[in-house]
């Protein structure tokens, strides 16, 4: 059964990838890329990687196609033929691919429980994390404690990307404070408006659930942050960007993005203040295990805040660009905008 599912998913992935490479319509490519994300999320599910599947579904099938579509709206969806380097690319791909295939020949078999990766470092996480950290989700234990420093790096990466997008798109629109970036959907779309009103509160509650339930089931700060931002994005899509910005303006969102990183960093520094190493939570409470608990909850909160804030910031900036297109189409030559 597993095997069949595995083969079906892999062949679907392969077909989708070929279709993406083949199509000249960028809109289809973007949608297919979303499907590719969803398929890989399903594949991760079958591999038992539930947290990864959750994240990939949110990113690969959610955020990433959304941003690509926004860019397409500005840049046109037709791709003109330009395969001058097809031969070079084929040569490169053949070489790299051959090297990769050669590399597989000495690999341990797929799923082999005696492979080095399964016998060296990982067993400690599986066997001792309950005693050392005291939470059932091993992925959260490793992510937020054993390798918490990588996760700090990850939050900083997101923060950096947010600032990078900000530095690129800030003030780049023609009509600055005037006009709404995303127009509210007209009143006659009553169903949409009602559906959104009904959906958004559960989405936000669900985000909170994912945020604080990450220790027991799949979830955690990153996924929660994305879902939280999605709630706001949905609101903006239906009721207009200005309506959202009245709740969470640009300044606030930037502040929160920085705040999340600072929260994470401060927990680390607190570890040092209690005489331990950076990001060592064990002295944050009476006994080490509750210390770990507190530490993990707080850093996950930091992750969630930064992720939600950066996602919203990026969404604001992209949709402001769209508004600009509506205001001042003469900036782009219409033939090229497609």
């Amino acid at each position: 059964m597993d095997l069949v599912l595995d083969i079906v998913l892999l062949s679907l992935l392969l077909t989708t990838a070929v279709a993406i490479a083949w199509t000249r319509d960028l809109f289809s490519a973007a949608m297919l890329a979303g499907i590719y994300g969803l398929l890989s999320a399903s594949f991760f599910m079958t591999m038992g990687a539930v947290d990864v599947a959750f994240t990939e579904a949110a990113v690969g099938a959610g955020i990433s196609p959304l941003l690509i579509l926004a860019t397409l709206a500005l840049c046109g969806r037709k791709q003109r033929s330009d395969r001058k380097r097809a031969l070079l690319a084929l040569g490169l791909v053949a070489t790299v691919g051959a090297l990769l295939v050669a590399a597989t020949l000495d690999m341990p078999a797929f799923g082999d429980p005696t492979a080095p990766a399964q016998t060296h470092v990982a067993p400690r996480y599986i066997q001792d994390s309950m005693a050392e950290i005291g939470i059932p989700n091993i992925v959260t234990s490793v992510l937020a404690s054993y390798r918490a420093y990588d996760t700090l790096g990850e939050v900083v990466v997101i923060f950096t990307a947010g600032l990078g997008v900000l530095s690129l798109l800030l003030g780049m629109r023609g009509a600055r404070e005037t006009g709404t970036a995303l127009q509210a959907i007209p009143r006659q779309h009553l169903v949409l408006r009602m559906a959104a009103k009904v959906l958004i509160p559960p989405i936000l509650v669900y985000a909170l659930y994912v945020q604080f339930h990450g220790e027991y089931g799949p979830g955690g700060g990153f996924q929660a942050g994305v879902i939280f931002a999605v709630g706001f994005i949905l609101y903006a899509l239906v009721f207009g960007l200005d309506a959202v910005r009245r709740v969470a303006g640009n300044g606030l969102v930037q502040f929160l993005a920085a705040l999340g990183v600072l929260i994470y960093g401060s927990v680390g520094l607190l570890g040092m203040a209690t005489g331990k190493n950076f990001l060592d939570y064990s002295a944050l409470a009476g006994d080490p295990v509750s210390g770990q608990h507190i530490g993990i909850i707080v850093i996950e909160l930091g992750v969630g805040i930064t992720v939600a804030a950066v996602m919203m910031l990026v969404f604001y900036l992209f949709s402001e660009q769209l508004q600009d297109r509506n205001d001042a189409p003469e900036q782009l030559s219409p033939g090229r905008a497609g």
Binding site: D51, V52, S64, T71, L74, V165, V314
Partner: peptide, 27 residues
Amino acid sequence: NPLPHVLILTAIVVGIATTSLALALVI
């Protein structure tokens, strides 16, 4: 094995960060 899962969670985030920056550059 939970460790590859943790690594890929980080890598997915790095990926979307790169994508959003790249798209902003394209705009």
